[in-house]
Design a protein around this nucleic acid. Structure first.
Lengths: 202, 202
DNA sequence: TCCGAACCATGACATTTGTCATGTCTCCCT
DNA sequence: AGGGAGACATGACAAATGTCATGGTTCGGA
């Protein structure tokens, strides 16, 4: 019997996944969580074999959660489940200690199979995404460029960013300009969008 | 026995929803579709009692799909299922002929209940969202303002938009400016984001 | 130790963007 | 017929944005 915890914020999807996995006789759902905080408590309490984690969570990022839990409980296997096939996410998830990485676009039959694979210590990673992650290469943004992009993302003005980082406005604009070039974007907002879609801002 | 078709693009979620509803003995899944085109064919062929439709679909919008099918097959009930609680979506869905409107954040138990309600001709609408839709009021954007916002959304420059619409650049910039004011945004990209989140661009 | 690469920081300049005043046209109400 | 409301259209102006040249710092390899 493989003991499983499911971490997924959308209640309807979470309930549906529970129903899906309950159909498999060798799998047992021992816990559910809608956010990182709950997830950490439940995993510590139940010590499951496999944890299924959605990356997009309301509080902390699912990757950070896995990183913490994987360090603390090395016997537990983690499978990331995500809507977005962002190569940067895959790279980060592997680095954090995840053994599996599935897209919500994948067929539902694959979920139970991947759980069994991962439980046996075998990696279960979407092959297309693995290729994309290799093709894409590493994050081309410098720390400062990421800073200004992140602050731009939440709607801060150049003036506000300059004040907060104790920089001249020209400097901030320059980082934005460099980030625009590095991402191949056409303006700062486009750069934010592209960097985010590649998982370069986390 | 209530006969159901599920329209949802993410395969894993679709499979999970099928598993969830299969647990209910008075419900029967008679078809599944990942996009609008397939959905229309399946619904015509199977004539279900209730169709569950995700709004965010890869090809056509789920609302447009319901509009067409509801006009053609008035005996069938439709429930919209969506990640985003956008009041404009609710307004548009009701206008298109949907009887139910659920968020993926809602508890999964509610799904089967809503299907039974809707099958009996009773509306099943998230109460918070209903209030929000009433509070928000109608779309404040003029057709031209929507045009330029839509084109801005897909990354077109002012010059490109002006050319395509045979307008002066000043005119296009003015529509953007008006849209920024109307949405309460701080710049054109913010205006796109806000208008989109309210369902004002479809 | 010297050199080059990478990152940080700034200001000058040209372009793009947002606002506003103005005018036209159509449609509806009186 | 007159008059107002609302949408369309434009150009002038001020402010924000993107680019570029330049210089400083740190750090690792030759």
């Amino acid at each position: 019997m493989i003991r499983i915890v499911i971490v997924e914020d959308q209640a309807m999807v979470r309930g549906a996944l529970v129903a899906l996995l309950s159909l498999e006789h060798d799998l047992e759902i021992v816990g559910e969580a809608p956010d990182s905080t709950t997830a950490i408590n439940i995993v510590r309490a139940t010590r499951p074999d496999v944890v299924l984690v959605d990356i997009e969570l309301p509080d902390t990022n699912g990757i950070a959660t896995v990183k913490m839990l994987a360090a603390e409980l090395p016997d537990i296997r983690f499978i990331m489940l995500t809507t977005f096939g962002r190569p940067g996410y895959l790279q980060a998830a592997i680095a954090a200690g995840a053994t599996g990485f599935l897209l919500k676009d994948s067929p539902s039959e694959q979920l139970a199979q991947s759980i069994r694979r991962v439980h046996n210590g075998v990696r279960a990673i979407d092959p297309d995404l693995a290729v994309a992650a290799l093709t894409l290469g590493p994050n081309p943004l410098t720390p400062r460029q990421r800073d200004v992009l992140r602050m731009t993302r939440i709607g801060k003005s150049v003036q506000a960013i300059a004040d907060e980082l104790s920089l001249g406005m020209g400097t901030v604009r320059n980082y934005l300009s460099e980030a625009i070039t590095a991402t191949g974007a056409v303006n700062r907002h486009d750069a934010v969008r592209i960097a985010e879609s590649r998982g370069w801002l986390d």
